[in-house]
């Protein structure tokens, strides 16, 4: 056996020996190291799974919020231009113009932590360390009157004890919720006595190139 062939054979043995025992059918992919998983696994659930060690106070959060968040969300989370409103709106959900904020609408505090940690500040995602995310989350609780003490510290230990007002405001999908006409065959002729136009797009005139700007934001 030539030297080259011997080294190829040796490499083959090495590869076999080093190859992990796969659960899968195709032996594709490689095992993720714990350090790789922990670096990417940044999600947080309502039961606290995924929360990092640490904590931060309302007072610390206020300073961070002014520096990192207020340019879009406003000093008090009121939302500038069309950027999201983060505070207020309690009691508006059943009204004509609901204001959906962390305080009025969001069911779980973990969602705030998870989202800020992964996606905020807008354009500089994942730049906040865990203590900063705790502090900003604490300040958002303060802006929404969920906590009232500026010295309050939100941390891994007390996190799941904080409940938001609208946690019980959600229900399962119960569609279809409109008349299922197919079972009795939908009407084909003389289905209504007369037809009149009740609403027109031209009254609003908010189509691009149509002139005015307006209408409610969808995001």
């Amino acid at each position: 056996m030539s030297k080259l062939a011997r080294s190829i054979a040796f490499a083959g043995v090495l590869a076999l020996a080093a190859g992990p025992v796969f659960a899968g059918t195709y032996s594709l992919g490689r095992e993720a190291a714990p350090v790789e998983v922990s670096a990417w696994d940044i999600d947080v659930r309502p039961d606290g799974q995924g929360l990092p060690e640490g904590g931060g106070t309302v007072a610390d959060g206020e300073i961070l919020f002014q520096e990192r968040c207020a340019a879009c969300h406003g000093d008090f989370g009121e939302g500038l231009d069309r950027w999201p409103v983060l505070a207020g709106g309690q009691g508006t959900l059943a009204g004509e113009n609901p204001v959906k904020t962390i305080g009025s609408y969001w069911p779980h505090l973990s969602t705030v932590f998870d989202y800020v940690r992964r996606a905020m500040p807008f354009g500089d995602a994942q730049s906040l360390v865990p203590n900063e995310v705790y502090a900003i989350t604490a300040y958002l609780l303060y802006l929404n009157d969920v906590v009232e003490d500026e010295d309050f510290e939100l941390n891994k230990a007390n996190f799941t004890s904080i409940k938001l007002e609208n946690e019980g405001g959600f229900m399962a999908d119960d569609r279809p919720d409109t008349p299922n006409l197919a079972k009795s065959a939908p009407c084909m002729t003389d289905c209504k006595p007369e037809v009149v136009i009740t609403k027109r797009a031209r009254v609003l005139d908010v189509t691009p190139d149509g002139g005015d700007e307006g209408g409610p934001a969808i995001d």
């Binding site: 059943a94 609408y105 969602t111 959600f170 229900m171 399962a172």
Partner: peptide, 16 residues
């Protein structure tokens, strides 16, 4: 939660 949930007239929302 904050998006892609469907607010109904009574103030409750459908989720998922």
């Amino acid at each position: 939660t904050s998006k892609y949930t469907d607010l109904l007239e009574d103030g409750r929302s459908r989720r998922f």
